[in-house]
């Protein structure tokens, strides 16, 4: 079982997070792609591109979409992917702890991995270091 991971973010964010994850983990254990949405991009065209990417990532177990902020265009495009037949769960609020945690549980199912992502993202926020 192997879920695909698709990062849908504003410009420069997704690739930077993947670079950081690669630096920490070395080889990435899940198929992964990044779709960064630019301010002047055509949403319809980017939706089609994201759907094509998601189809390539899906080896039968679905795609976990991680978007940087709920309600923004990258996330809004992601929410429309199921209309194009993409089997996915979307988790918003992407940060490096979320991505690292997802990549540490490559054997999980899509539903499990969505919960793992949310837990990792929340758990990675720490106020002060007493």
């Amino acid at each position: 079982m192997s879920v695909g991971v698709l990062l849908m973010t504003h410009e420069s964010m997704g690739a930077a997070l993947v670079n950081a994850a690669r630096h920490v983990l070395g080889r990435l254990p899940l198929p992964l792609d990044v779709q960064e949405i630019g301010a002047n991009d055509d949403p319809e065209q980017r939706l089609r591109a994201a759907a094509a990417s998601a189809r390539e990532l899906d080896h039968g177990d679905g795609v976990l979409v991680l978007s940087d902020i709920y309600g923004a265009t990258p996330c809004n495009i992601a929410q429309r992917l199921p209309q194009l037949g993409v089997h996915m769960r979307c988790v918003s609020g992407l940060n490096l702890p979320m991505l690292l945690r997802v990549l540490n549980y490559p054997e999980q199912s899509l539903d499990e991995l969505a919960q793992t992502a949310a837990h990792g993202g929340r758990g990675g926020i720490v106020v002060d270091h007493p």
Partner: peptide, 10 residues
């Protein structure tokens, strides 16, 4: 076995 767990030890 949890990467975030280990990191949170700082």
């Amino acid at each position: 076995k949890s990467i975030m767990g280990v990191m949170m030890l700082a």
